[in-house]
Nucleic acid binder design. Structure first.
Length: 886
DNA sequence: CAGCTCACG
DNA sequence: ACGTACGTGAGCTGT
């Protein structure tokens, strides 16, 4: 077998590793405060590569300083790059140490980049009959692919790689590896900062290269090109194109002194590695090395447990004043899930059982309800609701692993305890999938040993992770967010979910039959107009009818075919009566399937109520979401849909529905966090904000009237600002030209200069820190903020400015909910909080309490936090959710 | 299971 | 040259 050569592009892998883990940057520091994410990532990559590739020779190439023959040739080469963060550079010496201890050679060459070293050695390898694997984070190296050289480019993280062979390059780009150089010469490279030829991007570059073979080929045949702007640019910029080609070409003959024979791979030096991992605090790698190399899989540290029975319940009281508790509910819907078993305890003793009935015994019940005994759990709300079904009021919750993880990183929201624990570097617990299986095979194991071990492992994981997570919350200044907002909110949400909302099934059924009739009528008309029967719900079949059979103009396409979305159909409506009918059909069938049938399915027969679940650890902004069913998107905008709300009624005779909502809360938050004087003044003066925005951006005189169209446009601009505006997007929405939209935005920024500053500063903050935060220090990491891809980066920039606004608004209503629940209980009101819909709270209450709520709820809501502008709250009430009036 | 469409703030 | 406004959940079709 041919000898194998491994060449690693050190700098690019380190970069990739660093940025891939940037959103967990704080998790990766050792005792001395050294950041270790890049080192860790590099090690992961190394393990991954060596698992599949067994090199005889191996080398990691590094860049040597900034000055290379390329910068000498072209001063701006790699210019304009932001400085490498200190957190990364400090890791480089340790990466080299890791490389050495892992038995690989490293090498750098003054005046040359790592690429050139790799290019040169790969060529030597090719000539000497080696099979070569190049590992890099840089796509440019794919130009080195050959029959015996494969280039593995890391994708998302550092272990996910795409292997480029000449065939793969051909498949993806339609050109040879060598022609990648020509392509890059023409299109330029923004990250290396050389320009290429004006107006030529990837598509055009590939086309030209395919046609003429190379940059040189193009200029030999330049006369064959038709007269065009592109041709002019090519001629004008010939010198640049040829120079860029040199810049893009990786050297195959750099003066590398090291020889292949010097690169023998000897394997890792175990003892040095152990020392190194200890220095880095890499516990998981250390653990793997300690166990025998052939079974280092998913084994967890063994755990001793005691099965709890009616005869040994005295063990519970001996646990002391703190312990983990875990009640296993195999279905995600904890309102209805069966109970499979539970575990509790602490490092002194772990107690487990399959029998939920034991929880009702005095010994366990008093342990669970005693507020002085601190409990650590995973998903407190699920545990509270589950235990409530057994008649037990869980109290004394101190640590919720799920909630804390989510606050530290909104992406850590897996409902699987095992997965989440692994995210935090704790491996002594398996995932549910590993123990229970997945899909149809998923089941609680019959084997007691297996099941109890898993339960005990979960309880232990919670306990073990608590100090570490509290420490991180503290470091992020998030302890008050956890202690004073999210954890108390869990209790409030649990109460709302348990209360549920009364829904009258008969009302829904009556509406349903009417809708069915209308649906049949419309269906017949559509079939007649189409001249055949087809499935109207199928966008594919509908597209065929509209755009092929009826030959209507195609306005928009989706990835898979014709778009038939509302905005498209609205444009087509004047041209064919069928379109109006389809729109009608869509509207009604949506009501029928999602709201009539959907809601009927989830009314509990025991109490005629719907019990939604609020997901507290899902959204990236800090909002809640609602599932099974979603009660945050019950129709309201269109009159036909709004009728659904007639079915939402109070649960007692003589009660009413009461609702309060924040007015323009996001724009008020914007005024507050930007500190913009004009915006703040408008709110302080109690202006109609869209109208006053119109007055400002359209430069109206004080006595001039604001017509509805102006207000509508100004409102769209306000929304746009909050969402991260683009002139194109605004133009689409309010049907004006792009340049007009551009002008509106410019005017806005002139009138509200601090809003402009805010956008700029927030994006800059995100670039520096990798995250943004709300008024309560809720965090969202934005790994794409420094992405090369324009669209990914732009998206991250829009989220960077939107998240603090949407998220702070979410913070405000959460605080209001906690205070509100507190007031209801303190005043011993019968009223119940039922729903939260982002800026609105819905209650049910006896008629007599309506006057109390009319004052209390707005008072609590508008004083929830003190902003530099007033918060405004509007209230309504009525006999059903439909009939709300001021 | 992904993609489309549409309900809400 | 990119591909367009932020955050969600659910039902349906078709691979």
């Amino acid at each position: 077998m041919a000898k194998q050569l491994l060449l690693i592009d050190g700098n690019s892998i380190v970069f990739r590793a660093f940025f891939a883990m940037h959103n967990q940057i704080d998790k990766f520091t050792n005792k001395d405060g050294l950041h270790t994410a890049a080192i860790y990532g590099f090690k992961l990559m190394l393990d991954h590569v060596l698992a599949n590739f067994h090199p005889d020779a191996a080398l990691v190439a590094f860049d040597a300083g900034k000055v290379t023959f390329r910068t000498k040739m072209y001063g701006d080469y790699k210019g304009g790059r932001s400085k490498t963060p200190e957190e990364l550079t400090e890791q480089l010496p340790y990466v080299r140490e890791l490389v050495k201890d892992s038995g690989l050679h490293s090498y750098e060459l003054k005046g040359y980049e790592a690429d050139d070293i790799i290019g040169t050695l790969a060529k030597e390898g090719d000539d000497a009959g080696y099979e070569t694997l190049i590992v890099t984070g840089d796509r440019d190296l794919t130009q080195l692919a050959s029959e015996h050289t494969t280039v593995a480019v890391t994708h998302k993280g550092v272990t996910d790689t795409e292997h480029y062979t000449p065939e793969h390059v051909q498949e993806k780009l339609g050109i040879t590896p060598a022609q990648i150089i020509d392509m890059k010469a023409l299109m330029g490279d923004t990250s290396d900062n050389y320009p290429g030829v004006t107006k030529i991007g990837e598509k055009t570059a590939i086309k030209l290269v395919k046609q003429f073979g190379s940059v040189e080929g193009i200029y030999e045949n330049i006369d064959k090109l038709k007269k065009s702007k592109m041709k002019e640019h090519l001629i004008e910029e010939e010198k640049i194109a040829r120079q860029c080609k040199t810049l893009a070409t990786i050297l195959r003959d750099a003066p590398v002194e090291i020889k292949l024979a010097d690169l023998e791979y000897k394997g890792p030096q175990t003892e040095k590695l152990i020392d190194f991992y200890q220095k880095m605090d890499f516990q998981s790698f250390l653990k793997k090395m300690a166990v025998s190399p052939d079974d280092q899989d998913t084994e967890t540290a063994p755990i001793e447990y005691t099965e709890l029975t009616a005869d040994n319940l005295d063990l519970v009281a001996k646990l002391g004043d703190r312990g983990s508790f875990y009640l296993e509910m195999p279905d995600p819907n904890y309102h209805t899930s069966p109970f499979a078993g539970f575990a509790l305890g602490n490092d002194k003793q772990w107690l487990v059982s399959r029998d939920p009935e034991l929880l009702k015994t005095p010994e366990l019940k008093s342990w669970l309800t005693d507020s002085k005994i601190k409990k650590d759990v995973f998903n407190a709300k699920a545990q509270i609701v589950g235990l409530n079904r057994l008649g037990i009021a869980l109290d004394g919750i101190d640590f919720d692993l799920l909630l804390a993880s989510y606050l530290l990183n909104t992406n850590d929201n897996s409902n699987d305890l095992g997965k989440l624990a692994h995210e935090h570097g704790y491996d002594d617990v398996q995932t549910d999938e590993e123990v229970y299986g997945k899909g149809a095979k998923r089941a609680i194991p019959d084997d007691d040993q297996l099941f109890f071990q898993h339960l005990a492992n979960k309880a232990r994981a919670i306990e073990q992770l608590r100090p570490q997570l509290f420490e991180q919350l503290k470091k992020n200044e998030q302890l008050p967010l956890y202690t004073d907002i999210e954890l108390p909110l869990t209790q409030v949400l649990a109460k709302m979910e348990i209360t549920g909302v009364h829904v009258d099934a008969q009302t829904l059924k009556n509406m349903g039959s009417k809708l069915t009739e209308r649906l049949t009528e419309i269906e017949e008309q559509i079939y007649q107009e189409a001249g055949e029967e087809f499935n109207i719900n199928s966008t594919k079949q509908l597209g065929k009818i509209l755009f092929e059979k009826l030959k209507l103009p195609v306005i928009k396409k989706t990835k898979t075919g014709y778009s038939t979305a509302v905005d498209v159909l609205e444009k087509l409506a004047p041209q064919a009566p069928i379109v109006e009918n389809i729109l009608q059909y869509r509207q009604i069938s949506k009501l029928q399937s999602t709201y009539i049938k959907g809601l009927l399915k989830v009314i509990h027969s025991s109490d005629q109520k719907i019990h939604t679940r609020y997901l507290q650890t899902l959204t990236q902004t800090g909002r809640l979401s609602s599932v099974d069913p979603n009660l945050q998107n019950i129709p309201v905008r269109l009159p036909e849909g709004r009728l659904i709300r007639q079915a939402f009624v109070p649960s007692h005779e003589g009660w009413q529905i009461f609702s309060s909502d924040y007015s323009q809360v996001e724009l008020r938050v914007l005024a507050h966090i930007t500190g913009d004087h004009n915006l703040q003044e408008d709110f302080k003066n109690g202006e109609d904000i869209h109208a006053s925005t119109a007055r400002r951006i359209f430069h109206l005189k004080p006595d001039q009237e604001i017509d509805r169209n102006m207000r509508r446009r100004a409102k769209a601009v306000n929304f746009g600002i909050v969402y991260g505006i683009s002139d194109y997007g605004l133009a689409q929405r309010i049907h004006v030209s792009r340049s007009q939209a551009h002008e509106f935005i410019q005017n806005y920024f002139k009138e509200f200069p601090k809003v402009k500053d805010y956008i700029h500063n927030t994006i800059e903050f995100a670039r520096q820190n990798g995250y943004v935060e709300t008024i309560t220090h809720r965090r969202r990491y934005l790994p794409d903020i420094n992405a090369k891809s324009f669209s990914r980066r732009s998206f991250a920039e829009r989220t960077a400015m939107n998240t603090p606004i949407q998220g702070s608004a979410a913070d405000i209503i959460k605080i209001a909910m906690i205070k509100m629940q507190d007031e209801l209980e303190k005043r011993q009101l019968k009223a119940k909080m039922l729903l939260q819909i982002h800026d609105e709270l819905v209650f049910e209450a006896p008629k007599e309490e309506i006057p109390v709520l009319s004052k209390l709820v707005p008072d609590v809501m508008d004083s929830a936090v003190k902003l530099s502008v007033p918060l405004k709250v509007d209230s309504k009430y009525g006999d059903t959710w439909y009939d709300l009036k001021k």
